[in-house]
Amino acid sequence: MSDSWGLCKGCKWWQIEPDASVTDQTAGFCIDEKLQPFQLRITGNGGCNRFAAGKPARAEGSSEKPPEAAPQR
């Protein structure tokens, strides 16, 4: 397993609604540059090897299907 693997809820590339709580079930949008074309909507307990520790970004429309928010980082 990669040292850079981690959960979305602790990743700076996870973007959620402005008023959303950071929980396992909160739906958000992965804004990692290489994954943006896929408009990946994922919950906080998802994870991958593109993890970068930090607080999630926030923008209105991040939890829509598909996400409607522009990446904020």
Rank of each mutant, 00 (worst) to 15 (best):
P67T: 02
P67R: 00
D32P: 00
P67V: 01
W13C: 05
F51D: 01
D24G: 05
F51E: 02
A27M: 10
G10S: 12
T43C: 12
I42E: 10
W14M: 06
L7T: 03
K12N: 07
S63N: 14
S63W: 01
I16M: 05
G10E: 14
K34N: 15
P71G: 01
E33H: 13
G54R: 10
G47D: 00
A59W: 01
F51W: 12
L40I: 11
C11R: 08
P56N: 13
I16P: 15
K34F: 05
E33W: 04
G44K: 03
S4Q: 09
T43K: 03
A57R: 12
G46F: 04
K65V: 08
A57L: 08
Q72H: 05
S4C: 06
M1T: 15
G28T: 14
N45M: 10
G61P: 05
I31M: 00
C8W: 06
E33I: 09
R50D: 03
P56Y: 04
C11Q: 07
A20D: 15
Q15W: 03
N45S: 14
A27N: 11
K12P: 05
S63Y: 01
A59E: 10
P66E: 02
A69H: 02
T43H: 08
A59H: 02
I42N: 04
G46E: 06
K65F: 03
G54N: 13
S62R: 00
I42H: 04
I16A: 07
G54F: 06
P37E: 06
C30T: 15
S4Y: 11
E60V: 09
K55V: 04
T26N: 09
R73P: 11
I42L: 12
P67S: 09
S2C: 09
I31V: 15
G46N: 06
S63G: 13
A27I: 04
K55L: 09
C48P: 14
G47H: 03
A53M: 11
C8S: 10
G47W: 00
D24C: 05
G6Q: 10
I42Y: 07
G46Q: 07
G46M: 03
C8E: 09
I42D: 04
T23H: 14
L7K: 08
A69E: 00
A57T: 12
P67K: 01
E60N: 11
W13F: 12
G47A: 04
Q15I: 00
A52I: 14
E17F: 08
P71C: 02
C48S: 11
E64P: 05
G61I: 01
R50I: 14
G6T: 04
T43P: 04
L40K: 09
C8G: 12
P71R: 02
E33A: 13
E68M: 05
G10T: 13
L40V: 13
C30H: 15
I42R: 06
D24T: 08
L35S: 04
G54C: 03
G47Y: 00
N49P: 06
C30E: 14
C48H: 11
Q72L: 02
D24I: 12
D32H: 11
E68N: 07
P66H: 00
D3L: 03
F29W: 14
F29G: 03
G28A: 15
S62E: 11
A20W: 08
A69K: 00
K9V: 09
V22P: 07
F29R: 01
C11V: 10
F51L: 10
G44P: 07
D32R: 11
T23P: 15
D3G: 12
K9F: 08
Q39I: 01
